[in-house]
């Protein structure tokens, strides 16, 4: 039961949904340095949905504007239906976009360029919640405060 063991060890499988390759790599770096693993990379919403359907994903890190017809907010809704927690990392400062994103119940909304400590803090929250089988708290607004 490899999945269970890795959960017990607190290692998360994180899906990185981001269409800028360099940013995706940076996000992956932060995830791996924090001791977790990248479940996959998706530059489009369609590809992200495939991962959510077929792979074990403990957390989805989502950009909002993506290549293709689906946005990160669409992916967030799909993740939510499958009880997979998600966090947004976006360059959008538009209040209506942010409102729509927050309505999906993310763990945080991180503004680009994001503070890596905040992402690490989200990873810690999800790890703790997995260990205690509690649903992670969704956070609107500014994201987690250290």
């Amino acid at each position: 039961m490899p999945d269970q063991r890795s959960t017990m060890m607190g290692k998360l499988r994180v899906l990185v949904v981001e269409d800028e390759a360099l940013v995706a790599d940076y996000v992956a770096d932060v995830i791996e340095e924090a001791g977790h693993e990248v479940a996959g990379f998706a530059a489009t919403g369609e590809k992200a949905l495939e991962y959510l359907l077929h792979e074990r994903v403990d957390l989805a890190v989502l950009d909002i504007k993506l290549k293709g017809s689906l946005s990160g907010i669409d992916v967030a809704q799909a993740a939510r239906e499958r009880a997979i927690p998600h966090v947004f990392i976006s360059g959008s400062g538009d209040p209506s976009t942010r409102q729509a994103a927050e309505a999906t119940g993310p763990l945080a909304f991180l503004q680009k360029p994001f503070n890596q400590a905040k992402l690490v803090s989200v990873l810690e929250t999800v790890t703790e919640c997995k260990a205690t089988s509690e649903p992670p708290p969704s956070i609107g607004g500014e994201g987690r405060r250290g």
Binding site: E20, Y26, G91, S92, G93, K112, P113
Partner: peptide
């Protein structure tokens, strides 16, 4: 303005990502 804001922040994120790669 919205588009410029978005582009600016995305580009700053790319700069930060490049710095991180260089750092490593």
């Amino acid at each position: 303005l919205k588009e410029l804001y978005h582009r600016l922040h995305n580009n700053l994120q790319i700069v930060i990502s490049l710095l991180r790669m260089t750092e490593k």
